[in-house]
Design a protein around this nucleic acid. Structure first.
Ligand SMILES: [Mn+2]
Ligand SMILES: [Mn+2]
Ligand SMILES: [Zn+2]
Ligand SMILES: [Zn+2]
Lengths: 144, 144
DNA sequence: TATATAATTGATATTGAATTTCATTTGCAG
DNA sequence: CTGCAAATGAAATTCAATATCAATTATATA
């Protein structure tokens, strides 16, 4: 079994949360894509495998998957929360095209370091951070 | 008249948007505080001066104030959009305490420069960007 | 393995901020 | 002034997030 599923199984056990086919299916579907999914997106994907699984179950499952450390919530400011992989995916920022919605994931150790430094300066204990650049991607730049 | 109000007046004229007592009052109230206000916050403050002004008018006015370049929308991820001053306030990130809600405004030219560099690297034309660090402030660190 | 029981599920209801609608009011050009 | 389009304020609508609840199901234990 892949490591991500192991982590999930152990998390369930540790927290006294029950295993269920629904939760396994939802995790499988989530792990099988690298997209930044909204709950509705994930629900539609899950429907293809098991049309009986309800929206509320998907909603609750992805929350648990997040708590288990396998997903990270990302907010692109468009009114819907998204979920992306967290396990074996290093922290990154996003550059989001305001025209086509496409985004680029960016990693910059220098920025990360400077952020740590800022936190130290203000005696702030950082837990998570967010870096987003909104603008126009190369393709959309040339469009009218 | 202060410059900010000038800018607003000219923006209204340029856009063919009418002047109104309500809009002026809402702008005055907004300019008179340095807080990060939600629409409801601003509405309550406006109520103290002119109790007849409705929520929808405040909502519409702060949007116009933003468009005029006097306010910036900030999203601390708690489900309510906030507005802060933009005019004569340099761009900054936020460190937000997840325990008490307090936040610290941080400016780091090095990070800004690195972000520009990242954008260039991906041929991305940046319009605005966001940097937020969530964690625990000095006071809350010691609490249970 | 059968049973008790507490967690989970799925349909549905609720919440709350954002946004829209619309009848009335008002700014302002002529 | 007057006419009329824009603005206002109350209320309605939207929609994602979250809660509710009766039916179902996983799992501990006898
Ligand atoms: Mn990502
Ligand atoms: Mn600020
Ligand atoms: Zn684009
Ligand atoms: Zn604090």
């Amino acid at each position: 079994m892949e490591m991500a599923k192991q982590i999930f199984t152990f998390y369930l056990r540790d927290e006294g949360i029950r295993y269920s086919q629904q939760r396994e299916c939802i995790l499988d579907v989530f792990l099988s894509t690298e997209k930044h999914l909204t709950v509705i997106d994930l629900y539609h994907l899950v429907q293809k495998k098991h049309s009986g699984i309800g929206y509320a179950t998907v909603y609750r499952a992805i929350k648990i998957i997040s708590q288990a450390g396998l997903a990270r919530e990302v907010d692109f400011g468009d009114g819907m929360l998204r979920f992306e992989h967290k396990y074996k995916h290093e922290h990154h920022g996003h550059m989001i095209c305001t025209k086509c919605g496409k985004f680029i994931e960016v990693v910059d150790p220098q920025i990360e370091e400077l952020q740590e430094k800022l936190a130290r300066k203000y005696k702030f204990t950082p837990q998570r951070h967010k870096m987003q650049i909104y603008g126009t991607c190369e393709k959309c730049k040339t469009k009218v």
